[in-house]
Each structure stands twice: as C-alpha cells, then as structure tokens.
C-alpha cells in the first residue's frame, strides 16, 4: 500500500516534469518509479505512517485558506508600515521567547513557518520546544502562541 502510493506520487512528478507521452519516455518513467517505490518508499512515509499522513494532508488543506488570509493581512500591514512617514513611532521591535506544546518536528516546522508568514512576527530560532520570535509591534507580540498553535494542533490531529 505504501509502495503503491509512493509510485503514483513519483509518476505524477515524472509526467509533470517531462511532458512527453510516447511509449519510450513513459516506459522509462514507470521503470524508474517502480525501482524508487520498491527500494526507498521508507524515505517518504517512515514506518508505515500512511493513514496518519493522509489525514494530516487533509488537515493542512483545511488550514491553508486561513493561512493565506493571514499572509494577505500581513503583507498589507507591512506595506502600510513602510509607506507611513511616522514609521519609527509605530513600531516597537522586541524579541520574545515562549514554549510550545507541539510535539513532533513536522508540527514545529509548520508552526515556525506560519509564525514567519503571519502579521508582525518572524521566527528567529527554534531549539527543542523553545521558540524565539522577533515581533514588530506590541500587539503582535501579545497574540502568540494563541490561536495559531491551536489550529495547527487541530489540523495535524494532536488535540
């Protein structure tokens, strides 16, 4: 089962990147993908975590629209700050540290990327469960970890 899913993902990549549909190129692709799926499917889905992964992909699909909305707000907020002449009075830069309750590395990476993309905050350093975040304003600093951590835990099936 794991190998079949790996095979179809690889084949989709091959067809997209090569764009040729004659027998020779397609046969070469099928052969390569069979070899890859047989020998190294453990790289993509370690230790038979396929059902969990599929559920997480579905959770991320539900999480992405909210993230896109946040990125949209973020880019307009930064745009407003850069064009306003009183910029140096509007920002209060500060470094803050907090601990997260997310356990797996995948969830922590997702959380760090989301912090970087949402308004007013970027992740500076992640050591185990301690996040160092640089916030541009006081309001952005107080909103962490808050709602985003809850949403990620929900999306990855860990609550």
């Amino acid at each position: 089962m794991t190998r079949a899913v790996t095979f179809f993902i690889m084949l989709a990549f091959w067809v997209t990147l090569s764009g040729m549909f004659d027998v020779f190129h397609l046969g070469l692709g099928v052969l390569c993908c069979l070899f890859l799926a047989f020998f190294s499917s453990r790289l993509l889905f370690p230790e038979d975590t396929l059902p969990l992964r599929l559920r997480q992909v579905w959770g991320m699909m539900l999480y992405l629209p909210w993230l896109m909305k946040e990125i949209f707000i973020a880019s307009f907020q930064v745009s407003y700050l850069t064009v306003s002449p009183k910029m140096q009075d509007l920002i209060q830069p500060q470094l803050i540290r907090f601990r997260t309750r997310l356990k797996t590395p995948f969830a922590r990476v997702t959380f760090a990327q989301s912090i970087t993309l949402t308004p007013g905050t970027i992740t500076v350093s992640v050591i185990d469960d301690e996040f160092t975040v640089y916030a541009l304003t006081d309001k952005a600093a107080q909103s962490l970890p808050g709602e985003m951590e809850r949403r990620i835990a929900h999306a990855l099936g860990m609550d």
Partner: peptide, 14 residues
Amino acid sequence: YSRLHAAGKCDTMA
C-alpha cells in the same frame, strides 16, 4: 530584523 519582515512576507505574497 525588521528588514527581514519586509523581505519574508511581501516577497512571498507577491
């Protein structure tokens, strides 16, 4: 660090 804000968010969105 605040220049990183402009680079990280605006470039990704654009």
